[in-house]
Amino acid sequence: MSDKSTLFKFDNISVTVEGKQVVNSVSLNIKRGEVHAIMGPNGSGKSSLSNALMGHPAYNITNGQAALDGVDILGMAADERSRAGLFLAFQYPLAIPGVTVANFMRTALQAHRGKDADMADFRKLFKKKMADLSIDPTFATRYLNDGFSGGEKKRIEILQLSVLDPKMAILDETDSGLDIDALKEVSKGINEYRNNNNAVLMVTHYQRLLNYVKPDFVHVMMDGRLVTSGGPELALKLEDQGYEWVEKEFGQKAEA
């Protein structure tokens, strides 16, 4: 297995929402085994990029290419992208009342394996993954995200990551709304998921998740563009000095 081969590559991606451009010609090349972080102030287009790559119907990719493991994904519906190995952990997961976490996970895994695939191992696998993430077993029979706290929702997102074991994981503000214990559990889950054949793209406003999940590359997004990239030290600089210097150096603030 060629360790350092490209896993997820997108070029010149531009995104509009309701006709308004929110991402402007963004490119990234992510190799197997790597962890990338996209940081940026609120409204810089980080979440829009993540949702658009996953196939969110409200985000329209107007230009660019994206390939996962050499396969073009932009022509695929969201479910096909998922089955091709792409995953997005949501910033604000919605409740699906009446659908239990276990039933949902089983259906999702069955969709990945194919409808005739054997699911005899599901119960055991699911139980183990729940235990690994210190999720109370009673969550299995609770309705997905229905009445869950912010931290519980994020943990369940990481549970989904862990059960589906995708090639490429995009984590959208997975650290937001977490207290320090939950942050540690969630980080542990992400680190357990990582290996030399998959990759992680973390989208975050703050540096604190990066203390627990060490990025190889940090990119800064501003006004819909990736404006600069560097190593982990870039995240520390942003933590220390805020986004002002980025704005001064790279910002193209649209004056109203």
Partner: peptide, 13 residues
Amino acid sequence: PMQIFQLQSRGIH
């Protein structure tokens, strides 16, 4: 439609 997308994003048709 966001609920549908959320389930689709997990591979569900």
